[in-house]
C-alpha cells in the first residue's frame, strides 16, 4: 500500500492533483482512494488531498502514516507532516516553506517559482508538483500520468500542462 498526501492552501490545485494521481493508478489496474480535507474558506486555509494506492480494495479511506508528504505552504508542513512514516519523504516548495522541519528526509524544489518563470503563471504549480511526485515515487509511469493529466484538464490547456508535468519530472 502506498500512502501519499498532497497539502497546501485552498486554491493551489492539490485536490485536482490528487484526483489525477488516483485516476492514473486506476488506469494501471490498481485500486485507489482519494480523499480531501479543507476548511470552510472558499480560498486559502490549509487544504490536503490524500491518495492511497493498493492492489486490493482499500477499506480505511484515509492516510495513516504517509510515505510521502508534499507541502506547498509553511502552514501545510506544520499541520500535515507530523505523522510522516519513519523514513518517509517530505517534498516542499522551497520558497513557500521558509522553515522546514528538522530531522526529516526533505526534497526541496521551487515548484511555484518554476511555474511562474517557465510557464508564466503560478497555476501550473500543482501539475509540476505531480510530475515531481511521480518521478520520486514511481507510483505510476510517466505515460500513465501524462494520459491522466490530459484527460482531466481543459482541452486548450493540455500542451501547457504536459510541459508543466515534464518540468516537474525533470526538476530533480
Amino acid at each position: 500500500m502506498k500512502q501519499l498526501r498532497l497539502s497546501g492552501s485552498g486554491g493551489q490545485g492539490l485536490i485536482t492533483a490528487g484526483i489525477i494521481l488516483a485516476e492514473a493508478a486506476i488506469a494501471e489496474g490498481k485500486e485507489a482512494v482519494q480523499s480531501q480535507s479543507y476548511g470552510p474558506e472558499a480560498r486559502g486555509g490549509a487544504s490536503k488531498a490524500e491518495v492511497i494506492i493498493d492492489d486490493k480494495f482499500i477499506y480505511h479511506p484515509k492516510v495513516v502514516n504517509p510515505g510521502v508528504v508534499l507541502a506547498m505552504t509553511q502552514q501545510a508542513v506544520d499541520k500535515y507532516s507530523a505523522d510522516l512514516a519513519e523514513g518517509g519523504l517530505l517534498i516542499i516548495d522551497t520558497d513557500l516553506v521558509p522553515n522546514p522541519p528538522q530531522g526529516k528526509k526533505i526534497i526541496s524544489v521551487p515548484i511555484t517559482k518554476l511555474s511562474t518563470e517557465k510557464l508564466g503563471r503560478e497555476l501550473f504549480a500543482n501539475i509540476i508538483a505531480l510530475g515531481l511526485l511521480v518521478k520520486i515515487t514511481g507510483v505510476v509511469s510517466l505515460d500513465t500520468i501524462k494520459a491522466a493529466v490530459a484527460n482531466r484538464v481543459p482541452p486548450h490547456t493540455v500542451d501547457k500542462n504536459m510541459e508543466a508535468l515534464l518540468i516537474g519530472y525533470q526538476a530533480i
Binding site: 485507489a32 480523499s35 480531501q36 479511506p61
Partner: peptide
C-alpha cells in the same frame, strides 16, 4: 462526508 466526498474505483 467520508463516503460522500471520497473517490474510489
Amino acid at each position: 462526508e467520508v463516503v460522500g466526498h471520497m473517490r474510489e474505483k
